[in-house]
Simulated scan of single mutants.
Amino acid sequence: MTTKTLFSAIALTVSTLTSAMAADVTMPYKAAPAAAAFSWTGCYVGGNVGGGRGVNEQQPIVGQDFTANHNSGWLAGVQGGCDYQVGSLVVGVEGQFDWADMKDTSTTLIPGGAIGFLLTTQLDRVATATGRIGYAFDRVLFYAKGGAAFAHFNHQMTQTDFAALSVDFTGSRDVTGFVVGAGLEYALLPNLSLKAEYNYFDFGTNGYTLNCSGNPGCAGIPFFPASGPAEHADRHARRELAIQHGWRAARRPILIGVPKASAARRVRRAAANSRRGFDAVVPAPP
């Protein structure tokens, strides 16, 4: 064997061994980045605006029936609460307060006479304390809610002959009842969401007092006492849009990695590298 042939054989052996060792080295890999899954867990505050309609039915007074009020108007206020998410299930509590101007005036005529009544009912504020439960599709949450409701009503009954006589009887009352509703909430950002909601309120039947004190026209008014009890049944529905800022806990991201090469793949890679080693070495002529 000549010197050139010996050097070629040594070069071939070194090339083959180097390729084989390279095949046994574990190839580094990098996990593919994954975005953190959105979580509804956390607390929030926000504001809301909306509109509503209601039915207020006045119970008969001294045998006189009255035309019902059909209130309508606006509501606006603030809300705050906390949610907790387990899987796709979201449960939470919320408190809400709204200023309102929902009112209506109805006219009732006394049969056979020239006297009538103008009955005005106004809802000027309402508050709720509710729980809610929902199902989340990532940033979209469908939910139902229910709980206690509190409201303040102003009442005015005007006895008039629609000409010269006009006497006002006024009163107000704080009432309690219940509320049920449903809504859809969407998280625009991790800490900012927008929701649309529908609520139904029922405040039952409540007594209140209408007063005519201090008015000289109160004396001798027929069909209605200067000060007396009355009963009112109140039912309202509210639709609203709300935007709220929250402090929510981020869920741990799910990391999706590229698996390491199997032993069989390493063997195939080593064989391929060995073939490339033979092709790279060209023996010199003797």
Rank of each mutant, 00 (worst) to 15 (best):
R269F: 02
V281F: 01
L75F: 06
I115D: 10
R268F: 08
R239I: 15
E57A: 15
G47K: 00
Y135T: 12
G42I: 05
A270Q: 06
H232D: 15
E94I: 11
G207Y: 02
D138N: 13
T120K: 15
V91D: 01
A23M: 06
A68E: 10
M21A: 09
Q156N: 15
G54W: 00
L12A: 11
V86K: 12
P111A: 12
G77N: 01
L192T: 07
D202F: 05
P225M: 10
G81H: 00
R139C: 06
V180H: 00
T120P: 07
T5S: 15
V49Y: 08
G47T: 03
Y84R: 07
V86G: 09
H152S: 11
P285E: 14
S213T: 15
Q159P: 03
D83T: 12
Q122V: 04
V25Q: 09
A264Y: 01
G50R: 06
G228M: 07
I243G: 15
S88E: 14
A35W: 03
T209P: 02
R276C: 04
T41L: 05
D234S: 12
N48L: 09
G54E: 03
P286W: 06
Q64I: 15
A144T: 09
G214K: 08
G217E: 10
E231I: 02
N69V: 07
R251Y: 08
P33H: 04
S39R: 02
C218I: 07
I10K: 11
V14K: 09
D174R: 11
S19W: 01
N56Q: 14
L17G: 03
K4H: 08
Q156S: 14
G257K: 10
N215Q: 14
E240L: 12
Y200R: 15
